[in-house]
Design a protein around this nucleic acid. Sequence first.
DNA 1: ATCATAATTTATAATGATTCTAATATAGTG
DNA 2: CACTATATTAGAATCATTATAAATTATGAT
Lengths: 134, 134
Amino acid sequence: MDNKHIFTEKLRSSGLRPTKQRIEICKLLFNRKDTFHFSISDLKNISTKKISLATIYNTIHAFTRKGYLKEISINSDKTYFDTNTSDHHHFFDENKKKLIDLDDNNVGKIKIKKTLPGKKIKSVEILVRITNDN
Amino acid sequence: MDNKHIFTEKLRSSGLRPTKQRIEICKLLFNRKDTFHFSISDLKNISTKKISLATIYNTIHAFTRKGYLKEISINSDKTYFDTNTSDHHHFFDENKKKLIDLDDNNVGKIKIKKTLPGKKIKSVEILVRITNDN
DNA sequence: ATCATAATTTATAATGATTCTAATATAGTG
DNA sequence: CACTATATTAGAATCATTATAAATTATGAT
Ligand SMILES: [Mn+2]
Ligand SMILES: [Mn+2]
Ligand SMILES: [Zn+2]
Ligand SMILES: [Zn+2]
């Protein structure tokens, strides 16, 4: 896994210096097959290297500004982020407090019939709350 | 406006004692034609009577538990509540930071094709982010 | 009305996520 | 190497929310 070089390039090309903290965070976030939904504390917990909390916040915010992460709207005490930055929807498992992707093709076409003068639609997102069946 | 009596009954029938604080909050929330979307600080600000912050939190949570209010999911530093407790969707005006109701009949039928074993759907909510057109 | 009791209100403290600060360390450039 | 802009860091500050525990109030029974 020599993604280090790839991440270094990615960071440089975004005007972010490739520090060891940022590269470590890149590995944690982007070295995976599936979409990753996480909170800051999740990220801190899975990191073996010790990165200060301030740096984690700084880095995640920088990545969000650069468009490498997306902030997800769920009413929670914590903010969630998503490595899938495309327009897509979510299940939110209220028991596990976990987000699960819901691709466009898993959702019928959404038609918003109401319009508001002087306003344009920026995004349309569905949140499907789920709980244990029993 | 002798809603006081109506609110007193409503509170009693919910097993909540009709205190002057709760009746005042009822008036602020339910004595209006339109749906009201608010945060705790919004509510504190529009109240002329002095009700302690703890009581405002307690009351809003009690009303939510009783089904008279609905918590709304937007990623914000504050929690928002809604006097419209029916299943419905929202516009979120990113410029004014205001929620606007979007009735079911303003949205085409939503079909969630993906299912998760052992899980049941609790709610399906759409958030349509809007910004100024220009 | 008086009492008894549980429910409610309240001021205040505690909590916890996030942001800020300002000192130290590091990356990029020549 | 030396210079400077950037980045990291520990710790403090902020702010919404929740917890605590004492004082007040609503209600039902005498
Ligand atoms: Mn939130
Ligand atoms: Mn929050
Ligand atoms: Zn996602
Ligand atoms: Zn609403």
